[in-house]
Amino acid sequence: MSQIELRDVAIEYRKPKSDESFVAIRGINLSIDKGSFVTIVGSSGCGKSTLLLAIAGLIPRARGSIRVDGRDVAGPGRDRAMVFQEASLLPWRSVHGNVRFGLELQRWSRDNVDQRVAHFIGMVGLGQFADYHPHQLSGGMRQRVNIARALAVDPDVLLLDEPFAALDAQTREVMGNELLHIWEHDKKTALFVTHAIDEAIFLGDKVVVMGKDPGRIKDVVEIDLPRPRTTAMLDSAAFVAYRRTLRDYIAADMQSLQMIEDAA
């Protein structure tokens, strides 16, 4: 059963200092199965964030329809939660306070909120750090808080916009593994944006490849690797083949960018 359905979606932004609009993405058709892990790759500026924000209900669409569990998306909702990049934590709140933030906004009953918060802080391995403030944490720890904040509101769909982009390669790998671990536990539908090809393959059941000018979906690649995924798979023949396919797609995009720059 597909849980998220996008039909012919287009998003436009107003160009700065003019009345013209700029088509960020268009002609987006996508079905995402309940409980699946879908990754979105594409070069920078192809509209990955735009697509995710539209599903989150944070930006209006110019045309098309977005449905989650059959309901039209008209704004943010309890059924979806978003994991942003690290700078989206409230710097004046502790880890506990930040994870509590989403629950407060969604008016969860106060009775066992703090217990719930503690549970999710423990789940991402930050039990010792509940009273720390974001500036006292490493980038990886901040992203654990971000993930805990999203999980705590018990969404059906998890939307992650390059959550590990600011992390070093090692931390990134560890975080990817842990995210999968958590996901395998309750199989929430996950939509994960990245520009790292390996990460997209390693995490995803499907990789959505996006291209630019205008932002669009070029292809959706099914990743037929067994779960649980292990780091050893990174060197398997199948993985290498996926990597090559995706790299060619994105390289094509880079070439067209090069042509534009040359022409200019």
Partner: peptide, 29 residues
């Protein structure tokens, strides 16, 4: 006020008074 914080608040369903009390005022303190 950091627009990223405002966006995060809205993603969790914050209304205008929420944003005011939980994001704008503490940020401006």
């Amino acid at each position: 006020a950091d627009p990223r914080l405002l966006q995060a608040a809205r993603a969790f369903g914050a209304n205008a008074p929420d944003i005011f009390i939980k994001v704008l005022v503490p940020g401006a303190l």
